[in-house]
Design a binder for these strands. Structure first.
Lengths: 120, 120
DNA sequence: CTCTCTGGACTACATGTGTAGTCGATACAC
DNA sequence: GTGTATCGACTACACATGTAGTCCAGAGAG
């Protein structure tokens, strides 16, 4: 399942609040994305076509629900990215993030906890 | 600087061995990529056009050298990816990698060392 | 010297992507 | 009941991308 950057923004809204209509998605994106409602509708249609969303009729409108799960999509995206750019090694990725101030103290704490669990 | 997946494969070869000619790059990719030499040349030309590579004449051929550094490119790619997919949080990324067996014991050890340094 | 092979330059072409516009039907305002 | 705003369906279009093909000039084979 290939989801483009713009489509991912739409998916994020629906992962957060499944069952929105096109207009609601447009509104939800309003802050960050300066898209017309047409653009949002196109993206929704493409996602339905790709099988990433399903629709449910609600009178004259459709409500949109994710068909693919947030977690599994992100896991696979992470995997692909690490494979493509870092030959599958996670450590260099994290090292690079650290270099560019990409890691907050919270992140570091969280990662430590995570590693602790993984070692078990 | 936007580098596509196919272009990244070419860059990787030249990061590894700067100063190859088109044919050499083609050969170097031979194992993994079933591209014709035309395809490789197109990718090289696009990368030059984008300013990611520079050429040096060597008789009738060109030798290709990276203009952008591997480390800085990867750091920025990592940053963008984490921002786009994980809202900038590194920890969930690592968690997902862990879920999909994306972390070897080596990775975990390396990450621990890294975190140790970061805490200083 | 002439023929052939190889290199780069230019061209091609389907598909994906970002970003929308048009159109016909319909639900709601009045 | 008639106009208008809105919905989904279909269409548009430029640029990126993956994957290559054509063409001409020069280098090397003989």
């Amino acid at each position: 399942m290939k989801i483009s950057a713009a489509e991912l923004d739409v998916m994020s809204v629906l992962w957060d609040k499944p069952g929105l209509a096109a207009t609601d998605v447009h509104d939800a994106l309003g802050d960050e994305k300066d898209w017309t409602s047409r653009t949002v509708k196109t993206l929704l249609a493409r996602l339905v076509e790709k099988g990433a969303l399903r629709t449910e009729e609600d009178g004259r409108r459709y409500l949109y629900y994710p068909l693919i799960e947030e977690g599994s999509y992100k896991a696979s995206a992470a995997r692909q990215f690490v494979d493509r750019v870092f030959s599958g090694r996670a450590a260099p990725l994290v090292a690079h993030l650290a270099d560019t101030n990409g890691l907050t103290a919270d992140d570091i704490a969280e990662l430590e906890k995570l590693l602790g669990e993984l070692k078990k």
